[in-house]
């Protein structure tokens, strides 16, 4: 657990259901590729009722992630997000529901 009371899950080993300390709506953020490398965690719980809010929250708590992948309420070029493993989203105004999961990933898929 971090000093600020948030629970960080290192590579999915800890169980996120143990603690939910933040106020407001919470969503799960799953990180892949560079976002994961910069944040140092595979996933985390973040606050926000819109995508942009969640990005702000993430940038505050994970400065390296914020610097590499986020610009305020927006994603930087080269990164994208996906809602619930279904729909790709980038608009910071998109409204989220309690318990949503957001995937944060590097844009190019080719290999």
């Amino acid at each position: 657990m971090r000093k600020d009371g948030r629970l960080e899950i290192k590579l999915g080993i800890e169980n996120r259901s143990k603690e939910r300390v933040s106020l407001g709506m919470q969503v799960t953020v799953e990180l892949f590729g560079i976002p994961r490398a910069r944040a140092g965690v595979a996933w985390t719980v973040a606050n926000g009722s819109t995508l942009g809010d969640v990005f702000l929250d993430l940038a505050k708590r994970f400065p390296d992630l914020g610097e590499a992948c986020l610009q305020g309420r927006f994603l930087k070029d080269g990164y994208t997000a996906n809602l619930r493993g279904e729909q790709f989203v980038t608009d910071p105004a998109i409204h989220l529901n309690e318990g949503d999961s957001i995937l944060l990933l590097s844009l190019d898929a080719g290999g």
Partner: peptide, 23 residues
């Protein structure tokens, strides 16, 4: 820059877990 960071730092194999998550 950031557009190639994935390739430089992780390589294409880093697609694996993301593709897995998206089924």
């Amino acid at each position: 820059g950031p557009a190639t960071a994935k390739y430089r730092e992780l390589g294409t194999a880093s697609n694996l877990l993301m593709f897995n998550r998206l089924n």
